[in-house]
Design a protein around this nucleic acid. Structure first.
Lengths: 267, 267
DNA sequence: GTATTAATTCCACATGGTGGAAATCGGTTG
DNA sequence: CAACCGATTTCCACCATGTGGAATTAATAC
């Protein structure tokens, strides 16, 4: 909830540098020291020291003379995906939706003003867009995002819009604040959000929020080719099915014990 | 392949500190500044600065006054799990095995001398031990680990044993080097590894290596209650089924295009 | 209102991160 | 076998910047 206008000047420099290197590895894949250093325009000695540190931590490993992301990150990724047990409880519902609809079903949560795919189930017919688990998306251009934003206080929505702005992802993306506020108002009333090729050309979507004692946890969403997601199926039946699923999930959430055990072994 | 006896003295201190804080959050869950600081015995001001830096990076977020792991880590976790496209290709085979056997099936890869669960499919009857995706295990005490080690050069195996030692995980764990070398030799000949309650009491397992042009990528494994995994089923039929699956997977691997596209959006 | 507790900011000091230069390593070639 | 790369790794001196104690602010209870 802090406006947090990008602490660019302060913060711990070497931590940022280490993560820049990690991001470079994430982006360009296995790479040699010199590639990484020149890619980021860092001194090779500096890059080397960071890589060695990250290697000691097991967050970077090497295959011969190339550095790459360490598998240890899958542990942290998992920790993120399960930081709230509710996220895991959404998974079977996503699977059900994917089976029933034969379309791509997703569970999206918000963090730092972005949407993050926590579960993705691509039915046999489901569209294969390049958005897998862990992917981060702008909230204003997706059904899930709108379902979430619609349940946030206006001021927080504003912070998010300030921070990430409203880039046009396709020519249908709503990029006008006032228009978006109205859209969110409508979503709040209907309880359902739609996305008509606002995120990716040729892809429609619809989403419903998932709440736990009043607070939004994320959104269940379905995405598919715009030619298949049309008419009553898209506007009525699909949303109703999803509302029912969300409702069921919400019941699970309220009646489940909030505790969750986890053991520690090799860290 | 570097012996790398824990660079404890050198390395970039602040990067290590940042990750210590991240690990604390991973372990103790959402926590306040003062808890984290006292848990790690760091000054609060220092802890605060690291947390703010990590927050700027979106790797830490706050719920009210508690800090927690940021969902952004799921992206890195995903990057790790897909750093080799072969890992993903193993997934459907794991599902098949889980269905056929009705036991827990896993795909494990090695990094930094540890085994890491990359896919876990728990059949309906499958045992629920606390080892999910991302979990790190000692190689010497699991069937997957032994299947992998059996295909490594002796010197590398030694490095791993030196680094992680051979703790007794249960009273059945093989903790003697010579005995382990012999066991690995047998695994290499048979092409199959067994685990008879060496990792967890009451849990047996069997694993086969998965190779791509001669190099081990990981292992397919099945684990289940020791009373169910016995006799010919455990020692013959199950291994044969898994060998067949691994073989099929290996064929997929050799005849698939090594390239893989990935797009970049919000990072 | 005041007391209490925790989070945040400030600050002076010296730790330790930095990049250029030198040394080492691993191949390749004459 | 020696000379020569290209790349990685280590060294080193400078000073940027990370550090923890103390002061300040914020939040909440009394």
């Amino acid at each position: 909830m802090n406006a947090n206008n990008e602490g660019d000047g302060d913060g711990i420099q070497s931590t940022k540098t280490s993560f820049e290197i990690i991001h470079a590895l994430q982006d360009i894949g296995p790479a040699r020291l010199s590639e990484i250093a020149s890619h980021l325009d860092f001194a090779e000695s500096t890059t080397h020291r960071h890589l060695r540190t990250l290697q000691d931590l097991r967050y970077v490993s090497r295959e011969g003379e190339r550095y790459q992301i360490g598998l240890r990150f899958s542990r942290l990724g998992r920790a993120a995906q399960t930081r709230d047990p509710a996220y895991e409880m959404a998974k079977p519902h996503i699977q059900t939706i994917a089976e029933k609809t034969e379309e791509r079903a997703q569970f999206v949560a918000e963090d730092h003003g972005l949407g993050i795919y926590l579960h993705v189930e691509t039915g046999d017919r489901g569209v294969h867009v390049g958005f897998g688990v862990g992917r981060q998306i702008h909230l204003h251009g997706s059904s899930s995002g709108k379902a979430i934003l619609a349940n946030y206080p206006r001021e927080y929505v504003d912070e998010i819009f300030d921070r990430w702005e409203l880039p046009a992802l396709t020519e249908n993306t709503i990029t006008d604040r006032e228009e978006l506020y109205e859209e969110l108002e409508a979503v709040r009333e209907r309880g359902v959000a739609f996305n008509r090729e606002e995120h990716v050309e040729g892809v429609n979507g619809t989403a419903v929020p998932v709440k736990r004692d009043g607070k939004v946890l994320g959104a269940l969403a379905v995405a598919g080719p715009s030619h298949r997601l049309t008419g009553d199926w898209f506007e009525k039946e699909l949303p109703n099915m999803m509302l029912a699923t969300a409702n069921e999930l919400e019941l699970n959430l309220t009646y489940s014990t909030p505790g969750s055990a986890d053991d520690h072994l090799v860290e």
